[in-house]
Structure formats: structure tokens, C-alpha cells
Amino acid sequence: MVSDPTNDKNIWLSASEGDMERVAYLVEKCGLDVNTLDENSYSTLHAATSYSHSHLLRYLIEKGGNVNIVDDDHETPLFVAEDEDVARLLVEHGADASHRNAEGLTPLEKLIQDDEHEEVQEYLKSVGPAPVSMPNTNDNTALEDTETGREIAEIMEQAQRDGTDPDERLRELVTRNLMGQQQ
């Protein structure tokens, strides 16, 4: 059965509903790119992943879907996986479990922070880097016992005062310390 060409469901809604027939029609007959983002920067892969439509996700990947496509929050489809099998499918097709979103979190760290989808968390623990826990920046006394700790505390306090993101300065500090250890 061929999808009704008068149907006005867009590709993203069709993907979120698991409407394989409509998505295939839009891709194969209308030439839509499976990697096109909607006005909210959501891709068909994000939609299929979010609603655990693994059959549709496989199709989108076969049609050139980028498993590491990012939205405006710099999140890949793996960030919205609510099902272990879907997360596994993405990783098996090259999804980067160590990718960091705009907040600096990996998919695993975001799931832990949001206290969601324990089975996906367990799977991601087996394939990705261990979550990074930042020290409590409200109590810097233990941090300030070392030079690096004092620098971290200073960066965090400065960022808090300025209302800026400390990530870049923290990355520079870590890189500088790692490079110094390798010499």
C-alpha cells in the first residue's frame, strides 16, 4: 500500500509516530533528506529514537541517517534514547557515547542527572566513559589544598561572579595539567 500523497504529516511527526510508510514515502518519493532538522532542530533520528521506533531508526540509518546529528542543544539522538535496545542500535551504528552536549554532559551523565531510564544508563556505562562528577563548588576547602584545586576554585568563583560558563577555562587547566604530567 502506498502512502496517501495528500497526507500532510511531516517527516518528523511521522517518525515520532513510527509511521514507516509515510516516512518512506517522503524519503523515497519526495526526496526528503533524513538528516533535515525541523524548526526546533529536531531530526527524524531524534524523533524515532525518542519514541523507541527501532524499525524506523534502522530504516533511517540505511537511508544515510547520521547517528551523531546534533540539535541546538548539541544533543545527538543517543541523548533521547529511552530504551536500551534503541541505545544499543545507535551505538552499534557509530553513535558516540562520549559526545558532550551544550551543558558539557554525555548522554549517560544527562540520564543520571535527570534520574531517568536506568536500563539505558546501565548499558551506556558499559560502552562509554565513566561519568565525571564535579566537586561541590560551594565548599572549596578540600579543593584549595592543592594548586590545581585552588585554580579550579578560582575559576568557578569567577564564573559565578561573572555569570559565565567556566568550561573553557577548566578545559585549559586540565589540558595544561595533563601536558605537564606527560613531560
Rank of each mutant, 00 (worst) to 15 (best):
T6Y: 10
W12N: 01
L13N: 11
S16C: 10
V23F: 00
V23S: 04
L26F: 05
V27Q: 09
D33P: 01
V34L: 08
T36Q: 12
L37E: 04
D38Q: 02
E39Y: 09
Y42C: 14
L45Q: 06
H46V: 06
H46P: 08
H55Y: 10
L56S: 08
I61A: 09
I61G: 14
I61D: 11
G64A: 06
N68R: 06
I69S: 14
I69C: 06
D73R: 12
P77V: 03
F79Q: 10
D83T: 02
D85A: 15
H93F: 02
G94I: 00
A95V: 03
A95Y: 04
A97C: 12
S98P: 01
A102S: 15
T106D: 11
L108R: 10
Q113W: 07
E118Y: 08
E118G: 13
V120L: 07
L124R: 10
L124Y: 03
K125W: 05
V132K: 12
V132G: 14
D139N: 04
D139E: 05
N140G: 14
L143T: 02
T148C: 11
T148K: 07
G149D: 06
E151K: 13
I152K: 03
I155H: 12
E157L: 05
Q158C: 08
R161Q: 12
D162H: 07
G163D: 05
D165F: 00
D165T: 08
L173E: 02
L178R: 12
Q182A: 15
